[in-house]
């Protein structure tokens, strides 16, 4: 038997979907699990955080971090994993870019507290919890502001087959090789290179099942998005919202690229575009606002405020 690879899996603030996708390799688990020596995985094995903290630095071969760092505890776990593991993987779009929960940065944290704890339809005059819970960071910073990663595995969540490919490479000690194509490459729809007449919201009409959705007017981020998902939405009639982030180099600004993509397909005047796209920031920066150029300015603003 090949020697076991030691691994620690940590969960920041996340939805568990990336880990669920790992579990969804199904019967392959029987091949992969015996090759892994799981040193920490809170939801699955009964080791405590103090166990993880007590391992010597760089003593674990692989670390995996799911989610973004919303609380001080998340930041601590992220840094601990970095210290203990030789290779650290940003696992999933939240971990790579900030993900959907990064949209909280559209607002001030106090406004977030208001609807979550102070006043909403089912409660009033509540207070922000503070006993035996870790403090919340006022802003979501991309994980790569806190630590360096060796591998980025985007996707919300990464597909099970992508995870299996990555794990197999790690176990065999090989580089992970991933195809660079965008989602369009995997989409079975035909592009006729005709301009978009008008932007349609996705519930409008019934789309032609054989033609490019974008060319029919439905906003689709396929041409600006890394196709590691192999086009699972677009091949089922659903527009791409870009959940795998930009194609390599993945540090490029996905939102900005998506907007210029739309501009080249839809020759509309800026005013018309503004009128027809109801929520550009939520459409184009849905998955990667914290790590985008715009999002970085937002973080700087927060830093300036906190420095006062």
């Amino acid at each position: 038997m090949t020697e076991q690879v030691s691994i620690a899996l940590g969960q920041g603030s996340s939805c568990w979907g990336c880990f669920q996708s790992l579990i969804d390799i199904h019967l392959k688990l029987a091949d992969v699990l015996p090759l892994l020596d799981i040193k920490y995985w809170q939801a699955v094995v009964d080791y405590k955080l103090s166990d993880l903290e007590s391992y010597p630095d760089k003593s674990i071969a692989v670390g995996v971090y799911e989610g973004m760092a919303r609380t001080e505890e998340d930041v601590h776990l992220l840094k601990t994993l970095r210290a203990k593991c030789k290779i650290l993987i940003a696992f999933g779009t939240c971990s790579c870019f900030g993900g959907i929960p990064g949209m909280a940065n559209f607002y001030d944290i106090e406004d977030c507290y208001d609807v979550k704890f102070r006043n909403n339809k089912t409660f009033s005059d509540g207070e922000v919890p503070s006993e035996n819970v870790p403090p919340i960071e006022s802003i979501v910073r991309p994980n790569r502001h806190y630590v360096d990663f060796d591998v980025y595995l985007p996707g919300c969540p990464p597909t099970s087959s992508l995870i299996l490919t990555a794990l197999t490479s790690l176990i065999e000690g090989k580089e992970i090789e991933l195809p660079p194509h965008t989602v369009c490459h995997y989409c079975s729809r035909e592009k006729k290179e005709t301009p978009v007449p008008e932007i349609l919201r996705p519930f409008k009409g019934n789309a032609d099942p054989d033609r490019c959705l974008l060319e029919q007017g439905y906003i689709c981020l396929g041409s600006a998005t890394w196709g590691l998902c192999e086009g699972q939405c677009v091949n089922k009639g659903v527009t791409c919202r870009g959940c795998f982030g930009p194609p390599p180099p993945i540090t490029q600004d996905h939102g900005a690229a998506s907007i210029s993509m739309l501009g080249s397909y839809a020759p509309l005047l800026p005013d018309e575009l503004k009128e027809q796209v109801p929520d550009p920031i939520g459409y184009f920066w849905r998955f990667d606002y914290p790590s985008s150029h715009l999002g970085n300015m937002r973080i700087k603003r927060e830093d300036a405020k906190n420095a006062k």
Partner: peptide, 12 residues
């Protein structure tokens, strides 16, 4: 020990 504020960022 965590929350992500979906109620807020759904607004808009």
């Amino acid at each position: 020990g965590s929350t992500r504020f979906f109620e807020k960022f759904l607004e808009g």
